[in-house]
Write a protein that binds this DNA or RNA. Structure first.
Lengths: 338, 338
DNA sequence: ATGAAAGCGCTAACAA
DNA sequence: TTGTTAGCGCTTTCAT
C-alpha cells in the first residue's frame, strides 16, 4: 500500500543513504553542500513529502496542534483561529480547529485527550470548565488556555486584562452622562472559579464613578450569541426604569440588544447607548455601527500558538505564564451618534 | 519515548499473541470467547487505546480529512464547516479545517496536495480555480468540490441549484413591483468556466419578467465581504437612475449594501429593497432583517463528508456525481418592511 | 482459533 | 561527513 515517495526512494535516486536524506530534510546534522544539492534535486523531482504517521510513530510527535474554540461561527473566534492557523504554519505545524459548542462534556473530553493520539498539544478557550477540572486532568500533552477564564492552574494563559477593559467600556458610557447602565451576558453557571471578570470590571467602574450597583440591571444569558442579547435586552426594557446604556459581554450580544431596542421603537444611542466587546466585523457594518472594546486578536492567536509549540518542543522550560495582550476602545455610532 | 500502553503490553498481560489482541480490537477474524474476555479485561485494566500513527503507517490512511473554505469568518462557511466536522466525527474521522483566503495559489497548493501526507482526502470550496486547474491535478487523494463553481470535472460536487435559487430571489424582487433591479457581487476574474451562475439566474429572471438587462446595474466586486457590498452599493447609488432593488451575491454583501443605502439617507426597503444569499445569522439580526435565499448548509456539509469518506474507503465506486441540495426563500424586513 | 514475523517510513544511536 | 541498523506500534500473511 505504498502510496507515495519515501525517503528510501530519494536515497536510491540520489545515491546516498537514508540518514543523509533525513538530514537534508530535517537538518539535525550537517550535510555536505554538494550532497545536499543532489538530494534536494531528487526530492523536487520525485515530489517527496514526509510521511507524518511514520515520523510520529518514531518520535512521538505528530506536528499537529489543536485549537478548540467554543463556536465556529462567532467571528471573534474565527479571527483568533485564523491568526493561530497562520502562526502554526510558519512553525511547520498544522493546526486542527475544533469546537466545543460551549459544552462542558466536550471541553472535558478535550482536555482529557480525546484526540490524545493525534495531536502534540492543545489550545483551549474554555467556557464551562472550572479550576478543579483543569487540575484533575491526567493527559501530559501541553495545554494552553485562552480567554476570559483564569484558573490559577499550571498552564500558560493568554488573554487581555478583562477587568481593565470592562472598566474602560463602562467608563466610556459614564462619560456620556448615562447613569443607569446595564450589563448583559453574565454567566449563569457556577463552575467558574474567579467571579466573572467582565462583570467585575463593570462593577468597579460603576463604583469608581460613584454610581450604585443595581442587580436588576444585570441580565444573565445562557449563551453568548445574538439571540441571547435580544432576549436579555427585552427583559431589561421591561423594567419600570429601563437602562440608558448597556455594556454587553460581547459584540454578538450587543447586536442582539440593538435589535431589541429597535423593536421597542427606541433609538441607539439617543435612548440607549450600547457598547460591545471583541470588535468583530459585524459591528463595524451594523446600523448603527457598534462601539466596542477591541482586543488584539492577532496576537492572542500568535502567542497561544507560540507558547504551545515552545512547550511541545520542550524548549520553554519557564514557569507557566499569564500573558496579557493589548486592547483599545473603539468608539462608533452606537454610543456617540453621528 | 513510549508514552502509552501498546498492543504488546496487552498481549503480555493476557498471555496471548499480538495478532489475537489486534483481532479483539478490530474483529477482522474470529476470536474464542474465553480469550476475548481475557484480552478485553487486560485492555480495560491497562487502559489501552490504539496508536493511530502506527495503524495509519500500516494501512496507508490517517483518518483525517480536510475541508478548505475560502474564509473562516464568513458565517456561511463556518456553518457548513460545523456540519462537516460533526459528520466526520460520526464516521470516526477527524476533520482538518483550512482556509484559502480566496487565493488562487493557496487553492492550487491544496488540490496538488500540500497536506498530501496528512490527509486521506479533501473537500474544497474553490473560488479562483478553473476547470483546467482541477483537471491538471496530479494527486490521487479523493477530492470533493462544494459551492457555486461547477467545472464538469471527475469529482463529486455538492451545491444548491444556483441558477434556480437566484431566479427565485430576483423573482421575489420583481413581485414587489420593482423594475430597476441591481446585482452586486459579480466575479471580476476570468478563470471561472461556466459563466457566473448567480448572475445567470439574475439575467434569466429579468428576462422572464420582461425586464431588460442593464449592465450598469451589475456591480463587480473584488471579494465577497461586507466592505465589497458597501463599495458596490455606493457606486450603484451614484447612477443617475439608481436601483429600486438589489440582489446581492451573498448576505455579507447585502449587509454592506444596506449600510451604504443608510449612509445615503435612503430607507430599506422603501427606497431600495435588498435580498441576500446564504441565510447567515447576521442577516436575521440586522436592522432591517435580511430577506435571503437559505441553502441547506447542514446537508451540504454532511453530503460532502459522506461522499468523500465513501471515496476514501473505496466503497463508492459510482461515477462522480453532481448533488443538488435544497434551498428556500426567506422573506424578512429588507424586502417586505414591517 | 491462534501465533510468529515481516514491514509500513522514519529518526537516532552507533560505526566508519 | 556519511552509512547502517534497530525499532516505534500496528496489521496481515503464512504457519500451525
Amino acid at each position: 500500500m505504498p502510496v507515495g515517495v519515501s525517503l528510501k526512494d530519494i536515497a536510491k535516486h540520489a545515491g546516498v543513504s537514508l540518514a543523509t536524506v533525513s538530514n537534508v530534510v530535517n537538518g539535525y546534522r550537517p550535510v555536505g553542500e554538494e550532497t545536499r544539492v543532489r538530494v534536494q534535486r531528487a526530492i523536487d523531482e520525485l515530489g517527496y513529502s514526509p510521511n507524518l504517521s511514520a515520523r510520529h510513530l518514531r518520535n512521538g510527535r505528530t506536528g499537529i496542534i489543536a485549537l478548540a474554540i467554543p463556536e465556529l461561527n462567532n467571528p471573534y473566534f474565527a479571527e483568533v483561529a485564523g491568526a493561530a492557523i497562520r502562526e502554526a504554519g510558519t512553525h511547520g505545524y498544522t493546526l486542527l480547529l475544533d469546537y466545543t459548542d460551549s459544552d462542558r462534556q466536550k471541553e472535558l473530553l478535550l482536555i482529557e485527550g480525546i484526540r490524545e493520539r493525534v495531536i502534540d498539544g492543545l489550545i483551549l478557550s474554555p467556557v464551562q470548565l472550572g479550576r478543579a477540572d483543569v487540575l484533575a486532568r491526567r493527559s501530559d500533552k501541553p495545554l494552553v488556555l485562552i480567554g476570559e477564564s483564569v484558573y490559577d492552574v499550571p498552564h500558560d494563559h493568554i488573554a487581555i486584562d478583562n477587568v481593565a477593559a470592562s472598566h474602560v467600556a463602562v467608563q466610556h458610557l459614564v462619560s456620556l452622562g448615562r447613569h443607569r447602565i446595564a450589563f448583559i451576558g453574565a454567566h449563569p453557571d457556577v463552575h467558574r472559579q474567579p467571579a466573572h471578570l467582565r462583570l467585575r470590571g463593570y462593577q468597579e467602574a460603576l463604583s469608581s464613578a460613584g454610581l450604585s450597583f443595581d442587580p436588576a440591571l444585570v441580565a444573565v444569558t445562557a449563551q453568548f450569541g445574538r439571540q441571547d442579547g435580544l432576549t436579555g435586552m427585552r427583559e431589561l426594557l421591561k423594567l419600570s426604569e429601563p437602562p440608558e446604556a448597556v455594556f454587553a459581554y460581547n459584540d454578538l450580544i450587543a447586536i442582539g440588544a440593538i435589535r431589541a431596542i429597535h423593536e421597542a421603537n427606541l433609538r441607539v444611542p439617543q435612548d440607549v447607548a450600547v457598547i460591545g466587546f471583541d470588535d468583530i466585523e459585524d459591528g463595524r457594518f451594523a446600523t448603527p455601527s457598534l462601539t466596542t472594546i477591541s482586543p488584539d486578536k492577532e496576537s492572542i492567536g500568535q502567542l497561544a500558538v507560540r507558547s504551545l509549540i515552545a512547550r511541545v518542543e520542550g524548549k520553554h522550560v519557564s514557569e507557566p505564564a499569564d500573558i496579557q495582550t493589548p486592547f483599545r476602545l473603539v468608539t462608533r455610532e452606537s454610543t456617540i451618534g453621528r
